[in-house]
Amino acid sequence: MSITQTLQQVAGAVGIAVMVSILSAKESSFLATVANEPTQAVATGSSLVFKISLLLAIVNVVLSLFMKKPSLKSMGN
């Protein structure tokens, strides 16, 4: 049980780090190529990260529909 909780914590931290890296890369790209508008760059980066997060959430919901419920025998009853 504690291994699962630890894995969830680590996966959450890695996920946030990846999303912040994507946000930062998109901001830098926007500032270098489009315009020198920091607020617009943050909005562009945030928009991309929210779209990626939405896509991952949809994938999670769809995959959760295919999960099987454990039988009572496997639960120890």
Rank of each mutant, 00 (worst) to 15 (best):
S53D: 03
M1R: 10
V20S: 09
V61A: 14
S28T: 12
I52H: 03
S64D: 11
E37A: 03
V10L: 11
A17V: 12
S47T: 10
M19G: 07
M19F: 09
S29A: 12
V42D: 04
S47G: 15
K68V: 13
S47R: 09
M75S: 03
F66H: 09
P38T: 00
S53W: 07
I52P: 01
A35S: 11
V18H: 12
K51T: 14
S71N: 12
Q8A: 11
V62I: 15
P70Q: 02
M67G: 05
I52K: 00
S28E: 06
G45V: 00
V18K: 09
S24Y: 11
N36F: 00
N36K: 07
P70L: 04
V10Q: 05
K26R: 10
A25V: 11
K73P: 04
K69S: 11
Q5P: 00
A13F: 10
L55G: 09
G45E: 08
S64W: 05
S47V: 08
A13E: 09
S64G: 08
P70V: 04
S24E: 08
S47A: 10
S28M: 10
S24P: 02
G15V: 00
I3S: 03
K73S: 12
V14N: 07
G12V: 02
T33D: 02
S74T: 04
M67L: 14
L65R: 14
A32P: 07
V62K: 12
V62T: 13
L23H: 13
L65M: 14
T33G: 06
S71K: 05
A25Q: 09
A25K: 12
A57W: 02
T44F: 03
T44S: 06
Q40M: 02
F50A: 06
K68R: 15
I58W: 00
V34Y: 00
V49L: 07
A43D: 11
L48P: 00
N36Q: 10
M1G: 13
A35F: 05
N60G: 13
L7A: 14
Q5E: 01
V42R: 11
T6N: 01
I3T: 10
L63T: 07
A41V: 02
A41I: 00
S21W: 02
L48M: 14
S21Q: 02
A11P: 01
